[in-house]
Amino acid sequence: MRIESNLNNVMIDVDSLEWNLYAYIDSSAAISMASLILIINDDEEDARDENDEPTYPPSKGYKSFLSVADLQSIKSNLAQQKSNYIDSELLEAVKYYYENDAFVQVNS
């Protein structure tokens, strides 16, 4: 299974995705809601590199990003802190988690 979309659409539908999938992001630009995202089931990817990572994502210009479980948790955590968050706050929460491996703290 391979799904290509943008970060905005992925985050809208993230709760309907299986938690065990993995997200890769376009490596050519800064992270934004328009960033291209590739969702894959790692277990279904047969072609592997020497580190046992799937070769398909980098061959298409994607780099490792976050798991779908991470994206689900980021959205859930933000919603618990601020139920009426806006897209820019969700983007900042995703970027913060990606860069710090921790949830952003929102002052609402």
Rank of each mutant, 00 (worst) to 15 (best):
V10D: 01
E4M: 11
N8I: 08
A30T: 13
S76H: 09
Y62W: 09
M33N: 09
F65Y: 13
D52K: 14
Y62F: 15
E4W: 06
R2H: 08
K63D: 13
E44C: 09
M1N: 11
R2F: 07
L21S: 00
A69Q: 06
E44H: 11
D46F: 11
N6A: 05
T55R: 10
Y62R: 06
D26A: 09
S32I: 08
A34F: 07
N51W: 14
L71S: 01
L17S: 02
L7C: 04
M33D: 05
M33E: 06
E45N: 11
P58I: 04
S73M: 05
A69R: 03
D42Y: 12
I74T: 03
L66W: 01
S27R: 10
S76E: 09
I40W: 02
D70E: 14
N8G: 06
F65H: 05
D70K: 04
R2A: 08
P58V: 05
L36K: 11
D52V: 14
S64F: 11
N6V: 07
P58G: 06
L36F: 10
K75L: 00
L36N: 11
E50G: 09
I37Q: 00
E44D: 14
V10Y: 01
W19G: 07
L38T: 04
I74E: 00
S5F: 03
N51Q: 14
D46A: 11
Y62C: 05
L66G: 02
M11I: 03
S59G: 11
S76N: 10
S76C: 06
N8H: 11
S73Q: 05
D52L: 13
G61C: 09
K75T: 00
D13A: 12
D43G: 14
L38E: 08
S67A: 04
V68N: 02
S64T: 15
S27I: 08
F65P: 02
D46V: 14
S76D: 07
